Simulated assay, not measured.
Amino acid sequence: MRRLLALALLLLSPASATRLVLLSDFNGAYGEVSYPPALTRTVGRILNDWKPDLVVSAGDLVAGQKASLTDTQVRAMWAAFERDVRGPLARAGIPFAFTLGNHDAGLAQDRREAARYWQAHPPALRYVDHSAFPFRSSFTFGELFFAVLDAAGPNVDAAQRRWLAAQLATPQARAARFRLVLGHLPLSGVSAGKNRPGEVLREAGALREVMERGQVTAYVSGHHAAFFPGRLGKLNVLASGGIGGRDYVGFPGTARSTVTVLDVDGDRLRLTLYDADTGREVPLSTLPARVSGLGGTLERVGDLR
């Protein structure tokens, strides 16, 4: 009888919520084939403490974007990424979803080698559109729909915006509780060191309009290496931070390496921010209330809905 009761309680209990880890901008100096110690510690926490269902990255996985690097050097950087990041996660059964950054796909050589690596190591995801992988794709993961933009540079053109609108109109996107768009460059400046033309998306207003119409939960970006959950117009924007952070626009001395845990909690994505150097939680209330960069003012939000 006790065994039957335990089985009934197990069947009636809700399924475990989905957990994601957001980890971006962890490349080293140009051509570097090792990673900062904070990344090694963070991968250890992912594997041993947080144990997410999926790791998501807004790019800059390797240290390319230098014309003098040879194919052999670029391949060595991807081998280091395989050794230190993707490989350990894969062995633990944790897929790695990503958009490519300017250091991963900023030059023709980088794009060729990124395609070579990822075509050999495709993430085990449920794709909706895989035709332009690894530069652009869409997929579902539990209650989430992801559209991945090719935003390694500042131009997301009309063709990509049409593609995104079409993806957000698919039955898979409409059925998802959360719709996330992943791109490397942000819609608006977040960090002081990157708050200039060429470091944020051009025609950001047109892209934001597509996401607002498609009822996107958040646009998730990298590049500025300063974590900030904000609101721009009617859209949530999540600047994902990075290993080796930068100061916020208007707030000198605020640089911090960060990694974020996102938990599906009913109708919200709950954000928990950690200092990647110390491992300590960073309350969101300690972040600036607003950040005013090129492209508009971001008003801080809490969890994403």
Rank of each mutant, 00 (worst) to 15 (best):
Q172L: 10
T254Y: 04
V156K: 02
P134W: 05
L168A: 11
S131F: 00
F133S: 09
K234N: 13
G241Y: 04
A38D: 10
R19M: 05
V261E: 08
R112F: 06
S138L: 04
A115T: 06
A289M: 05
T297A: 15
V190N: 04
M77W: 09
G193A: 13
I94F: 11
W163H: 09
S13E: 00
E299A: 14
H103R: 11
D267L: 02
A165E: 15
W163N: 09
S57T: 13
V128L: 06
G253I: 09
G214K: 03
T99H: 00
V220E: 04
R256I: 12
P134R: 02
T40K: 06
R246Y: 13
T272F: 03
L4I: 09
V128Q: 13
N236P: 02
P95R: 02
A76P: 04
F135M: 09
R256F: 02
R256Q: 15
A226H: 00
L4G: 01
V21G: 06
R112L: 13
A176V: 06
N102S: 14
W163Q: 10
F145S: 10
T297N: 08
V43M: 00
L182Q: 06
G153Q: 09
L273E: 06
R290S: 15
D25V: 03
S16Y: 02
F141N: 03
G183K: 01
T72S: 13
V148M: 05
Q167L: 05
D247Y: 14
Q109F: 01
R196M: 11
G296M: 14
G93M: 04
A169N: 15
V74M: 14
R112I: 00
V249D: 04
E209R: 10
P288D: 11
F141K: 06
R41P: 04
G101H: 03
D277G: 04
A151F: 04
A165P: 06
E143C: 00
L180N: 02
E199L: 12
R268L: 09
R305Y: 05
S68T: 14
G241W: 02
A226Q: 00
Y117L: 07
G142W: 03
R111Q: 15
A120Y: 01
W78S: 04
F139S: 08
A159R: 07
P88S: 12
G241S: 10
V55K: 07
R202L: 12
G302D: 10
L5C: 10
D275T: 12
E143A: 13
Q172E: 15
P229Y: 01
G222N: 02
T260F: 03
T99D: 02
G302T: 05
G214W: 03
T260Y: 05
A38Y: 00
F228H: 04
R208D: 02
M1K: 02
G293H: 10
L232R: 03
A38M: 01
W163L: 10
G44T: 04
P288V: 13
Q65K: 12
S68I: 05
L4N: 01
V128R: 12
R270L: 09
R280L: 11
R177D: 10
L185M: 13
A76S: 14
D277Q: 12
Q215M: 03
R112S: 10
D71A: 15
T286E: 14
L5R: 14
D157L: 01
D60K: 05
A92N: 11
R196L: 14
G242S: 08
A58M: 11
G214L: 05
G295R: 07
F135T: 01
E143R: 15
L273G: 06
V237K: 05
T170Y: 12
I243E: 08
